[in-house]
Computed example of a mutant assay.
Amino acid sequence: SNVLAEAGLANIMRWVPFTIDEQTLRNRIKNKMVRPTTIPQTLDELQIEHAIAREALRLALIHHKSLATALKGIQQERTISDVFEQQQSGKTLIDMLKLDLIVGSGGILSHAPRRIQSMLMMVDAYEPLGVTRLSVDSIFMMPHLGVLSAIDEKAATDVFVRDCMVYLGTCVAPIGQGKDGERCADYAITFPDGRIDKGQLSFGDLRLVPLASDQKASITIQPVKQVNLGAGAGVSVTREVQGGVVGLLLDGRGRPLQLSTDHDVRVAALKKWYQAVDLYPVLSAEK
């Protein structure tokens, strides 16, 4: 209900890949508010929960950015220089382009039926820029490990490393906008066995490349002139990427991520993206 009040119904509805009237959606959200521990029984219910989660995560990041700001009128020294950059006072210190790893925690991310669902919720909500690794708290144990660390730091660390962190994979997200279907970037992925996968990423594309958790690959991306991957517009970038239980996600939907205001166009785009990464079983069967 807090998410509904703060984000608004329209922002939640934009992530729902089917037609639903506002009152029905409000009723479903209210039912969840009254019975928060219920498990979705249908695919529609699951997709609505994931739509709400996207907005909750987006709002949480906005709130976090608003807290991580420079003190107004005071010059400060920085120690975590790669992530927190010195800016004029009052501006956020978080630079999404410099984040190497995003860790998601919370019941909706930990208990999603498929790990790709957790990964795409985080990508849609946080809109990582450039090349970013994503992981999730396996069974929502981070808060408990925080308490345990006060008693036995080594035990908490061991559990965190071995059982808590589930590495989902790496997201490659070019920064820029373009018309759907137009070329966004060319890429070449060199796998550990020497195999090279070359292709073109178009605007509006979402592509999942299998890459196991214990594997690393090298990716070279040549964006078009108006697209940036962190080195400047149109400048080629080569990075080592780590795999995960999901793999390597190539996100050509553009940054900032903009969904169509036309209902039919938006629903068609959502279905295309969800099918491309095998997000939900029923949608996969509709291919």
Rank of each mutant, 00 (worst) to 15 (best):
V3H: 10
L4E: 03
L4K: 03
E6Q: 13
E6D: 10
A7H: 09
G8Y: 05
L9S: 07
L9H: 01
M13A: 15
R14T: 12
V16R: 01
V16L: 05
P17C: 05
T19D: 13
E22D: 11
E22V: 07
E22C: 03
T24V: 11
N27R: 08
R28C: 04
V34L: 09
R35W: 01
R35K: 01
R35E: 05
T42Q: 06
L43N: 06
E45A: 14
L46W: 05
H50F: 11
H50K: 03
I52D: 03
I52T: 08
R54A: 12
L57Y: 01
I62A: 09
H63I: 11
H63R: 15
K65G: 11
A68T: 01
A70E: 12
K72I: 15
Q75W: 07
Q76P: 03
I80L: 06
S81F: 11
V83L: 01
V83N: 00
F84K: 00
Q88D: 14
K91Y: 12
K91P: 02
T92M: 06
L93R: 13
I94V: 12
D95A: 02
M96Y: 02
D100A: 01
I102A: 00
V103W: 04
V103N: 03
S105W: 02
S105R: 01
A112K: 04
A112W: 03
A112F: 05
R114E: 12
R115M: 06
L120W: 14
A125M: 13
Y126C: 12
E127G: 09
L129F: 05
R133N: 08
D137E: 09
D137N: 08
M141N: 10
M141I: 14
H144M: 13
L148M: 15
S149P: 15
A150K: 15
A156C: 13
T157Y: 07
R162K: 14
R162W: 06
M165W: 05
T170F: 02
V172C: 12
A173F: 06
P174N: 09
G176P: 10
G181F: 05
G181I: 09
C184L: 13
C184K: 00
P192W: 00
G194K: 03
I196A: 09
D197Q: 14
Q200D: 10
S202L: 15
D205G: 12
L206Q: 10
L208V: 05
P210V: 04
S213Q: 02
S213F: 00
Q215R: 09
A217N: 07
S218C: 11
I219H: 03
T220C: 08
N228W: 00
L229F: 05
G230D: 13
G232D: 14
A233I: 07
A233S: 11
V235G: 04
V237F: 08
E240S: 10
V241R: 00
V246L: 11
D251S: 15
D251P: 13
R253Q: 15
R255G: 11
P256Y: 00
L259F: 13
T261H: 07
D262Y: 05
V265F: 08
A268I: 03
K271I: 12
K271V: 10
W273M: 15
W273I: 12
Y274T: 09
D278M: 00
D278G: 06
L279F: 11
S284V: 04
A285F: 01
K287N: 09
